[in-house]
């Protein structure tokens, strides 16, 4: 009788998280089902997700009408003149920079916080508090993104403009980015968008990191503890080290989520398509700009195609980041020697 390892149990989906890429446990090829009735519809049905991804890309490419904006497409010079679209300049550099700054900074903050949360939950806390805090962290994922946006705009923004940003400027204004002029168009700015994005992606990165840390074989932990290491030493030198690929994958998936967030960011960033002078200045991102501008682009075919090309670039970045994340998790699975350490279905 083969004893099923507890790691074979299905893990219920955690906040915004797909279960790990290839966590299907080793099982015999499903020869019993193959070759039977219904098998003939097989592969095409299994590949529905692939067809959908291809369809999304194809529709966007068709909608762009292959409009060629020339080499200046990659410049930071964007200036749309409705009256004379021939004189307009079409560069997506500012959007890429805005996306990179917001998603990158949010990811740094979210990584630090999520690591702290997941180590707390997995290593330090007893089971009941850790379960309660897990549920609470997951609730954060259940709040609609529009509510994040409106909360940032109404509650956080005045505090940022009146207290936090002047305070930061006085304290660490010598660091590039922290010293420049503030936003002059009301409650908007890069810093606000970064903070909102951070809170939004924390449930995702925390859940993924938690699963990665939980996946470290118990043997390793017990060996560390038996040698006299403290909890923190085990967490740092054993768990974080052996789960590093999973943590890296969590970071990449968090980045993918952050670059794709449109509505909440559009509400707090200010939609100014220029290179930002400081972290306090209004800026824009690819996702928030294409969300914000589509209804005004209706009468300007060129602008419409430009927006579609921003969307294509965004899609390409998101897919590449996602593929890298999947590759990391698969490498981890390939190198893992034990799967028995997950300790049963991990609680949400």
């Amino acid at each position: 009788m083969v004893v099923e390892a507890p790691g074979d149990q299905p893990v219920p989906p955690a906040a915004g998280v797909l279960p790990a890429v290839d966590d299907a446990p080793a099982r015999p090829p499903p020869s019993a089902a193959r070759g039977s009735r219904w098998a003939w519809i097989g592969s095409p049905v299994a590949l529905i997700p692939l067809l959908l991804v291809v369809a999304v890309a194809a529709v966007l490419v068709a909608a762009s009408h292959f409009q060629d904006f020339g080499p200046s497409f990659w410049s930071t010079d964007y200036n749309f003149l409705p009256a004379d679209s021939a004189a307009s300049s079409w560069g997506i550099g500012a959007f890429l920079v805005g996306t990179g700054i917001t998603a990158g900074a949010a990811l740094v903050l979210a990584t630090v916080l999520s690591l702290a949360l997941s180590i707390s939950i997995v290593v330090y806390l007893p089971s009941v508090p850790s379960r309660v805090l897990t549920i609470l962290t997951n609730l954060l994922a259940g709040i609609p993104s529009v509510v994040y946006g409106i909360w940032g705009y109404v509650i956080l923004a005045p505090y940022f403009a009146l207290s936090l940003e002047p305070g930061l400027r006085d304290a660490i204004g010598w660091i590039p980015g922290f010293g420049g002029p503030a936003s002059d168009i009301g409650p908007h700015g890069l810093l606000l968008a970064i903070v909102i994005l951070t809170i939004m992606i924390i449930p995702l990165t925390t859940a993924l990191m938690r699963e990665a840390l939980r996946g470290v074989p118990n043997d390793l932990l017990e060996a560390g503890l038996a040698l006299g290491a403290t909890r923190w030493e085990v967490a740092r030198r054993v768990q974080m080290r052996s789960a590093r690929l999973g943590i890296g994958s969590a970071v990449l998936l968090g980045f993918g989520r952050a670059i794709g967030e449109s509505v909440a960011v559009a509400m707090v960033i200010g939609a100014v398509p220029m290179l930002p002078a400081s972290l306090y200045a209004a800026s824009t991102t690819q996702a928030s700009f294409i969300f914000y501008q589509l209804d005004s682009a209706f009468f300007y075919p060129v602008l419409l195609r430009f927006l579609v090309e921003i969307a294509i670039v965004l899609l390409a970045i998101a897919l590449v980041v996602n593929l890298f994340a999947q590759r990391l998790t698969q490498t981890e699975i390939a190198t893992a020697t034990t799967v028995g350490g997950a300790g049963g279905p991990a609680g949400r």
Binding site: L18, P49, L52, L60, G260, A287, L294, V321, N322
Partner: peptide, 20 residues
Amino acid sequence: LARIAGNLLAGVPAIVLGYF
């Protein structure tokens, strides 16, 4: 391939689906 594609589809930004 199907599993990789499933994860890719989850990675498509919501606004890009909106454009689609």
